[in-house]
Design a protein around this nucleic acid. Structure first.
Length: 590
RNA sequence: GGGCGUGUGGCCUAGUGGAUAGGGCAGGAGGUUCCUAACCUUCUGACCGCGGGUUCGAAUCCCGUCACGCCCGCCA
């Protein structure tokens, strides 16, 4: 209802300003601060004061006087308060909110018909996913969920670098070294198994005898050339390594959970000729220069000073060149493309944008979400060097700590719980992993995060469990009332929302009503953290309602009980779906 | 050196032109015969890095400056 209310408010302002013969290009609709009763307000009077020749409060008064709230279904009143025009919602707003939010998928926006591809993670398949990289799948998966919930047709892609130098090194190392010379793997898992060869290979290239290194480099070069020439046998050799390591990484990512619709391999664009096509078109462009035996592109007109090399002197393509073909493929198959990238890829992204534009693509269809890395207090995490915390270890530790927490709480509970061992495991999993994910997704992606165990695994206050607990409470009340999620129909279809008139109830209704607008904003700006901020405010508001408004107590009369139950169901859908788009589990009990 | 990003109470964080800068942690004081206390109430604590400027109004925009991070490969 919030979106409809906002439409009403905008219409009312336009009509009032037109009647006063004032410009309508700046309505100044905003959320009033806490403590102000209104749901929306306009600060337009500030800007119109000079035009009218009267002080802002007087202008606000004129605007408010011009508005007849009766003309708008969801507006109860428009009143001037100092220089602001404040808008109060009508009973229909509150009643409409409760009704609308009875739907299980409350908050989902109308289908847009737009096909959006979200590419995220795309880490080179060199070894286990570490925490430094984990922000990408968490942010990316949440962005994908939000776009989906906002009505778009979303596909999630992992772009696999299976043709670069790193994979050539890996393949060479895998074929060269003997397992007996390697340390024990940290886990019995494919990615942990194979990363030992990769580390050993890199170590060899850095420290071995120069002649031996040269021989190794020749083999690596042969692999790269084979890929470039489209040699099937070479592709097979590399594929074995890539698919094996990727398989292990996928398992870890799915725990987050982050799943993909498609793993797009860059070698595909080498084989279908599209990379060659890109190269030919670039060579023919006015910006192309042949310097130092390599083909380059001058991108000065895009404000990029550094030349973009798109063909090496040995005639092989670069990752960035292949990525151009990849993105043209995206443009052919989707209406929009979103890529989640670490901040270190920012310049490359700008370079690619410029080049795609030069090739005649509409780059407005492409957007990047940039995030800063998660570092350790002592520095960066690196797969090659083997420094860093593995995502699996973090998640295991999180689940273990969550389990301890659940077990501790079992002892000092007021109510008798009938949590089974199965419940305890489920809760530990939901809370532990949810806490990690929420901790990452709730912060602005551009802010750097320094990883600290205790901070990442804090289960109190502004954390996933705090919000999850609210969801569990809503489920608890509904179940107590005999309304299980399996049988939502048991909820009385007849309820009188006008009985919800205390401050606590009204505030909860208002925060529920805002949910679709939060989705709209998060989707438009590609910012999952605004949903996380919302869940926190939601939880605070719900907890106040919970404290002040008993639903099932004996002294609550039947009509009020039904209305409150409907409100609790509405709250459950809002917070449950908010957690859903964040990719955080919504437990029915804790 | 150049480019991009970040800087908000002791610590973490929301807020990108409008109403007393909103939370959390830590610290002090309270609350459970009552639908789950992973909760709530209350107190303490901020010259929004620093200096200028624009504006009726600046954490938010502009200029300068400092600190930190990232980038400036024929790597990815």
């Amino acid at each position: 209802m919030y979106l409809q209310f906002r439409d009403d408010v905008e219409a009312a302002l336009v009509s009032a300003l037109e009647a006063l013969d004032l410009p309508t290009d700046d309505l100044g609709v905003e959320d009033p601060p806490e403590g102000v009763e209104a749901v929306l307000a306009s600060s337009a009077a500030f800007r119109l004061a000079s035009e009218v020749g009267a002080p802002p409060p007087q202008v606000a008064g004129q605007i408010a006087d011009e508005i007849d709230a009766g003309d708008y279904e969801y507006v109860e009143a428009a009143s001037a308060q100092g220089p602001y025009v404040n808008f109060l919602p009508s009973d229909a707003y509150y009643e409409g909110t409760v009704e609308q939010a009875q739907s299980e998928d409350f908050g989902r926006l109308e289908p847009s018909g737009e096909r959006v591809v979200v590419e995220h993670t795309s880490a080179n398949p060199t070894g286990p996913v570490h925490v430094g990289r984990a922000r990408n799948p968490i942010v990316g998966d949440s962005v994908a969920r939000i776009l989906d919930f906002a009505g778009h047709d979303v596909e999630r892609h992992y772009y696999v670098n299976d043709a670069g130098r790193q994979m050539a090194v890996f393949t060479w190392a895998y074929e060269t070294f003997d397992e007996d010379d390697l340390p024990q793997p940290d886990r019995e898992k494919a990615d942990y198994d194979l990363v030992r060869y990769y580390r050993k290979g890199n170590d060899f290239l850095e420290t071995a005898d120069p002649d031996e290194v040269e021989a190794a480099e020749d083999e690596i070069q042969a692999i790269m050339q084979g890929l470039e020439d489209g040699d099937e046998e070479t592709f097979e050799r590399v594929r074995e390594v890539v698919d094996t390591v990727l398989g292990g990484m996928r398992e870890s990512l799915e725990r987050l959970p982050a799943a993909f619709d498609e793993f797009v391999k860059e070698s595909r664009f080498m084989r279908d000729g599209s990379v060659d096509d890109v190269v030919e078109r670039l060579k023919a462009s006015d910006e192309a220069v042949y310097e130092e035996d390599a083909w380059q592109l001058e991108l000065d007109e895009y404000g990029i000073e550094k030349n973009f090399v798109f063909l090496r002197s040995d005639g092989t393509t670069l990752y960035a060149t292949r990525d151009l073909a990849h993105h043209e493929w995206k443009f052919d198959n989707y209406d929009r493309a979103v890529t989640v990238l670490g901040e270190d890829h920012k310049l490359q992204a700008e370079q690619m944008n410029a080049t795609l534009d030069l090739l005649g693509n509409d780059t407005d269809k492409l957007r990047q979400v940039i995030y800063s890395y998660v570092n350790l207090p002592e520095g960066k995490m690196s797969t090659r060097a083997g420094t860093g915390i593995d995502l699996d270890d973090l998640l295991d530790e999180a689940v273990e700590r969550a389990r301890e927490e659940v077990e501790n709480r079992l002892d000092d509970r007021i109510r008798d719980d009938d949590l089974t061992e199965e419940d305890v495991s489920r809760i530990a999993e939901q809370v532990g992993i949810g806490a990690v994910r929420y901790d990452i997704v709730s912060k602005q992606p551009t802010k750097a995060i320094t990883f600290e165990w205790d901070r990442a695994l804090d289960f109190e206050a502004q954390s996933a469990p705090y919000v999850q607990y609210v969801h569990a409470r809503t489920c608890g009340i509904l179940e107590e009332a005999g309304i299980s999620s399996d049988a939502p129909d048991a909820l009385s279809a007849e309820f009188d929302a006008s009985l919800l008139e205390t401050d606590a109830e009204r505030e909860l209704l208002e925060v529920v009503a805002r949910f679709p607008a939060v989705i709209e904003e998060a989707a438009a700006d590609l910012e999952p953290h605004v949903v996380a901020t919302y869940t926190r405010e939601f939880a605070e508001t719900f907890n106040r309602f919970y404290r002040e408004c008993p639903v099932l107590a004996d002294d609550v009369d039947d009509d009020l009980r039904d209305a409150r139950l409907a409100l609790v169901a509405a709250a459950k859908h809002a917070v449950g779906n908010a957690l859903g788009v964040l990719g955080v589990a919504a437990p029915r009990s804790m």
